[in-house]
Nucleic acid binder design. Structure first.
Lengths: 333, 333
DNA sequence: GCTGGCAGTCGATACGATCGAGTGCCAACC
DNA sequence: GGTTGGCACTCGATCGTATCGACTGCCAGC
């Protein structure tokens, strides 16, 4: 534990900098009641904090700015919780009260909700298809020689793949193929799809083989869903245009976002600051995450991405509340 | 038709301004071989062009900048086509050669392709479900009392809705419900879903009714898919941060983008400049669009959104090429 | 009708002075 | 010894002024 007074000063600097985006001087800090010493003393402490790597000076004769290490200390030990106010809690409650039908819609809307609460970009990942089992496989004829393989998983996810048949296959053969596929694949994992044994009908077998191949290819490509909301709010989060461009560029790459979120959650972190998450273009960003549970099992994660000087107390509260309510809503559904 | 020389001057101003983003003066224009008159003469013509509303002056003693009307004249009568170069054509060819399985993936990737070609944001809409018919309706049991209604349309789209049953319904009853639904709904339009007649089994009927309700609700919400790529490129398109924020904010609202694209296409436009498309926050933007056809039928549209001073020749060429190749690829698939 | 010349406008740039917030250091004080 | 007020100093930000230069409109002459 850091010495009390020094900790109070660090907290004051971080809070002040988060609010004003301006380097914080000793006068401003000394004015606070919880510090209660003169500016000169504050300066002494600031020198120490700087030597220890919690603060830095943009230039001589400027105030102090937190380093990533400073933010880390802040969120680990100094942050004062800032629960959502009544209006915000009501907003969240109303949102989950009128839960929509489709999972995807709901997760997308959740990202918008979270983004609105925090004024930063929000990330929501859906259930990874890993631990789901196959509940249905069906071939549906479309026009001409095309057909659609539709696979339904136990978590409600639907994977589909378009097939181009060599010959026109009648509806009855497609039904037979569906039945054959169902017989062998129901209950299996979508990641361990195996070719199905022959059925005795060459055209059915051909259709089955194509369907399995296509579904495997599909499952490989799919990086796990992610819904990103409120990206436009990142525009005002940095004053350097180039920073904004880099961040938005990353947010466009779903697989990066999915990996980022999973990585941070797997490491047991709630907050990843600056370079901690390892995605270099997001070095000026912090990420506040929380997994969410459906019926006791972790199935996804939500997160808020903002500048390193983001408003952590609010983001932490919003992420915690939304993840809890999201899991709850999905559980009873 | 505008007088030749004046047209050449207008074209020169537009091209120059698109390239440099700086007001264009008479000297620069007079230097061009296709004009071939002195700066003084150019100035005379510029006064006329300004009176007619094609140009404006940001302030006295500055060069001229095109108005929206000026851009309109440019794209209608003055634009010099700028076909894609070999490398770009190759890029497009390679992209469509390795066509992926799922339609959605492909459209999303197409938006990225188009965005990469033009360096602006790209919009791609999928097939509207209007003219498709139902090819399959199925109820799949998930865990506990939840089930998933899955509807496949003839255009390959899949609509799904999660159901919460009053009682646990066995697989055989779900299969019966699926069969019952199929009997009445196959071939129908997804927008004219009617409750199905009783089957004689109360639980089956209840499940069917729930499924129909949920699917109707789902179809209502769905505004038509749209894939937006390259939004980060808009960051550098404007120097006013507020403009960027407004544009990105609009691009986050799928239904607005879908409506915008459909509206412009329906009006038969290829280019919508400034306020022509009626979305006020995009007043500083232009949109280059093209519908695409699958087997002779228009099923969607692609578009490029950039600042009004976007590089129209390139955008027109890219949009035309990609829409043609996209339709072609989807047709033979 | 076109052109060169010319006075005038006005934003952009550069420069210098000033301002002021903030620092480090030090001697004095409790 | 820790704390404090005093003080000289630093350095970015701000502001006014001067200058520059790109451009215009106008006009007389070709």
């Amino acid at each position: 534990m850091m010495e009390d007074r020094r900790a109070a000063i660090l907290r004051a600097v971080v809070e002040e900098y988060i609010e004003t985006a301006q380097p914080v001087g000793s006068n401003r800090v000394a004015r606070l009641p919880e510090v209660g010493v003169s500016p000169a003393t504050v300066r002494h402490e600031m020198v120490v904090l700087e030597q220890e790597g919690y603060l830095r000076q943009p230039h001589t004769s400027a105030g102090r700015v937190p380093t990533d290490k400073g933010y880390r200390m802040f969120v680990d030990s100094l942050v004062v919780p800032d629960p959502l106010d009544a209006a915000e809690r009501h907003q969240v409650g109303a949102f989950f009260a009128e839960a929509h039908g489709a999972l995807e819609e709901m997760l997308a809307d959740t990202s918008r909700l979270l983004s609105g609460l925090t004024d930063y970009a929000a990330l929501v990942t859906g259930a990874p298809p890993d631990d789901a089992t196959i509940r249905s496989v069906q071939l549906v004829g479309l026009t001409g020689r095309t057909a659609l393989a539709v696979m339904v998983l136990s978590n409600g996810a639907v994977t589909k793949a378009r097939l181009e048949m060599a010959d026109a296959v009648g509806d009855e053969r497609l039904a037979a193929a569906s039945a054959h596929l169902s017989r062998w694949l129901l209950g299996a994992s979508p990641h361990a799809l195996q070719p199905v044994p022959p059925s005795g009908d060459a055209m059915v077998d051909a259709a089955c083989a194509q369907a399995v191949d296509a579904l495997v290819a599909e499952a490989d490509v799919e990086p796990g869903q992610v819904f990103v909301g409120g990206t436009s709010r990142m525009v005002t989060a940095f004053d350097a245009v180039e920073s904004v461009r880099k961040v938005l560029g990353i947010l466009e790459q779903q697989y990066v976002v999915v990996g980022l979120l999973r990585d941070v959650v797997d490491r047991g972190l709630t907050v990843a600051i600056g370079v901690e998450h390892g995605v270099e273009p997001l070095a000026e960003c912090s990420l506040v995450v929380s997994p969410y549970q459906v019926e006791g099992e972790t199935v996804g994660a939500i997160g808020v991405l903002g500048p390193t000087r983001m408003h952590y107390p609010k983001a932490l509260a919003a992420v915690a509340m939304v993840s809890q309510r999201l899991g709850h809503t999905l559980s009873e559904n």
